[in-house]
Simulated assay, not measured.
Amino acid sequence: MAQYTLHKSATRGYANHGWLKSHHTFSFAGYFNPERINFGALRVFNDDFVEAGMGFGKHPHENMEIVSIPLEGKLAHNDSTGANGIIQKGEIQIMSAGTGVTHSEMNASATEDVKFLQIWIIPNKMNITPRYGQMEYFVNNNEIKTLIQPNTAEGTLRLQQNAWFKMAKFSGNESFDVFLEDAQNNGLYLFLLNGSLEVDGHKLETRDAIGIWDTNKISIQTTTNSEFLLIEVPMNLN
């Protein structure tokens, strides 16, 4: 029987550093909730706002898969692998920290704020050679588009884990099923970027999320135009 964990937007941790405002779905930095450590291999899910001209200076990471998804504005990236550039809405970035990476993430604009999702996935292999990937994507209406998956494939980025990232956009009053790629081992985490919908009867509004496992599919009913992110990850880290 399917299991569920519902994360309403207002229950997330919140940090206000002035230039940085961040909502933490899972325990992170100064926010600790023993019931919100992770969802399987999904360890961090931060919904960040960074003021114009500000950002995260150089800092280290290791043995973590870090995904950045801009929602508004532009984010400048620079890391010790030699990768650097700017990502904006309609683009996604993956950094496999592996044996160790030093990087910075700055608002690329001196006048416009940036909003982005920063997501960490625990890898299934430690101490790999660090790597970096970035790509543009476009999601049609009433489409679920795969952006990241475990294997190299045209039009997607690769992650060091048996995990998938998919972005979706649907009109209101649509009903459809979403099937897991690996239902035997994985769970599915849905984060509603905007709109309203129901997942197996559970109602979600903008910035709500739900985790589902012990099932091979979920049923979605949109009640308004909605955009959402689907992250499928292993539930057992042993």
Rank of each mutant, 00 (worst) to 15 (best):
I122V: 14
G211W: 01
A10P: 03
Q3P: 00
A108T: 01
T11V: 10
E51D: 13
N185S: 11
R12A: 05
N151W: 10
I212L: 06
N107R: 04
A2G: 08
L117Q: 00
I119P: 00
D214V: 03
A15V: 07
G201C: 04
A83Q: 06
G82T: 05
N33V: 01
A15W: 05
H61G: 02
I144P: 03
K89T: 08
A2C: 08
N124D: 14
R12P: 03
K115N: 12
L190F: 11
L42N: 12
A108E: 06
L229M: 12
S219M: 13
P34G: 11
K217A: 12
N216Y: 13
D200S: 12
E72F: 03
K166S: 11
N162C: 08
S226Y: 04
H77C: 03
F116I: 01
T81I: 05
D113K: 09
E227I: 05
I128C: 11
P70K: 09
G40D: 01
A10K: 12
F165Y: 15
N186P: 03
E65Q: 10
L42T: 06
G53L: 07
P34M: 13
V139D: 06
H17N: 11
A2V: 08
N33H: 02
S96V: 05
R207C: 03
S171N: 12
I69T: 00
N173K: 11
N142R: 05
E181Y: 04
Q3S: 14
K58Q: 14
F116K: 02
I66R: 00
F170E: 04
K125S: 13
G155V: 03
F228V: 05
D48A: 00
K21M: 00
M126T: 13
M106Q: 12
R131E: 08
A10C: 07
R207F: 07
S109R: 13
E143T: 11
P70D: 04
N63K: 05
P150D: 13
S196W: 02
A52M: 11
Q118W: 00
F179Q: 08
G172Y: 05
I231E: 01
N151S: 14
F138N: 15
E105S: 13
R158T: 15
N236F: 11
S175A: 12
H24V: 01
L71A: 10
S68A: 04
Q161W: 02
D47V: 00
N162Q: 15
T215N: 14
Y132G: 10
G195Y: 00
A29R: 07
T206V: 01
Q221I: 07
I119M: 01
Y31K: 09
L159G: 07
G211I: 02
L188Y: 06
S175L: 13
E72D: 04
F28M: 04
G133W: 05
Q221K: 15
P34E: 15
H59Q: 08
I220D: 06
L229D: 15
